[in-house]
């Protein structure tokens, strides 16, 4: 920083040239900015407008839909449910994902590439396909039930598919790779010699993990958690296809408001609340994920 400050001012010729170059660089971003403006900023603005100009705003003020969403017991319950589903999914992903990441970074060696492939490959198939896969496995006459009945553990097939737990299984299945990849990328920067140093200094395996590895991988954990949390908030197909409609979250409600009830203004208000959730999460990530000091 200081050395750069010392070297300025640069010779005039260089300044002029680099100034022109900077201008050129900004102009290159125009197409992308235009695209974003037309297909992202404008629709977003339209959505905000829609949420404050719907039919109910005439009677109850422009925030009528937001008031309804936050004060009506049913909708407030759904907000809480949304938060709960996202939190539980995030925690389960973390508990499932961290050991996988640790194994990949410390022990997988040349198998690392294969594991990364196995993690990414499911992301290439449609989420609907992956979700229906669970139907095949857990249906009344599916593989799991047939196996349990034949082995004599149960008399009648279990109704697993229509339980809320199915939603969590589906979500964790889809989102765990994001957690694993986030943690892996940070854990790779944690020098194994730091762990060895701790061991030599008298720390056991657990103490080494808790005092060295875990604190140094917090950035990856935070990134993974925020990613999974936001993605859970945004997913509705899993709730729609699994769990027999027992888990209703905000995103599923938006889908229903648009397609079934066709209360577009209310759906828009919900969408904005969900967007606010995501923005808060991103702000948290920007605030707490420092990305410093892991690599020396």
């Amino acid at each position: 920083m200081s050395s750069r400050a010392l070297s300025e001012p640069a010779p005039p010729i260089r300044t002029r040239r680099s100034g022109r170059f900077r201008l050129a660089r900004i102009s290159w971003t125009w197409p992308a900015l235009l695209f974003l403006a037309v297909f992202f900023v404008v629709p977003l603005g339209a959505n905000v407008l829609r949420s404050v100009t719907g039919p109910e705003t005439a009677a109850h003020g422009i925030f009528a839909y937001y008031t309804k969403l936050l004060t009506d017991a049913y909708y407030a319950g759904i907000l809480i449910e949304t938060f709960r589903v996202a939190t539980v999914t995030t925690l389960v992903c973390l508990l499932v994902g961290y050991p996988v990441s640790y194994f990949m970074v410390r022990y997988a060696g040349r198998w690392n590439g294969l594991i990364v492939f196995c993690l990414i490959a499911p992301l290439l198939t449609s989420i609907i396909m992956r979700t229906f896969g669970w139907n095949v496995l857990f249906a009344r006459r599916g593989l799991f039930n047939t196996w349990l009945v034949q082995s004599g553990l149960i008399d009648r097939p279990l109704d697993i598919l229509n339980q809320p737990v199915m939603v969590y299984i589906g979500l964790v299945h889809v989102l765990a790779p994001f957690m694993v990849l986030s943690i892996t990328s940070v854990l790779q920067g944690v020098d194994v010699r730091l762990e060895e140093s701790a061991r030599i200094l008298g720390a056991g395996k657990i103490a080494t993990f808790l005092r060295i590895t875990l604190p140094l991988s917090l950035d990856g954990i935070a990134t993974g958690c925020i990613l999974v949390f936001v993605l859970t908030n945004g997913s509705f197909l899993t709730m729609l296809l699994l769990g027999g409609g027992k888990v209703t979250t905000l995103s599923l409600l938006i889908y229903q408001q648009f397609n079934l009830t066709q209360d577009v203004a209310f759906a828009a208000a919900m969408g904005n609340v969900l967007l606010l959730f995501a923005l808060v999460c991103l702000a948290l990530q920007a605030r707490f994920v420092r990305r410093e000091g892991v690599k020396q």
């Binding site: 020098d191 010699r193 730091l194 060895e196 140093s197 701790a198 030599i200 060295i212 604190p215 140094l216 000091g293 892991v294 020396q296």
Partner: peptide, 14 residues
């Protein structure tokens, strides 16, 4: 009961 100095020092960055 050993002490060890590593090539890159391996100081705990946090």
């Amino acid at each position: 009961a050993l002490g060890m100095v590593f090539q890159n020092y391996s100081l705990f960055p946090h």
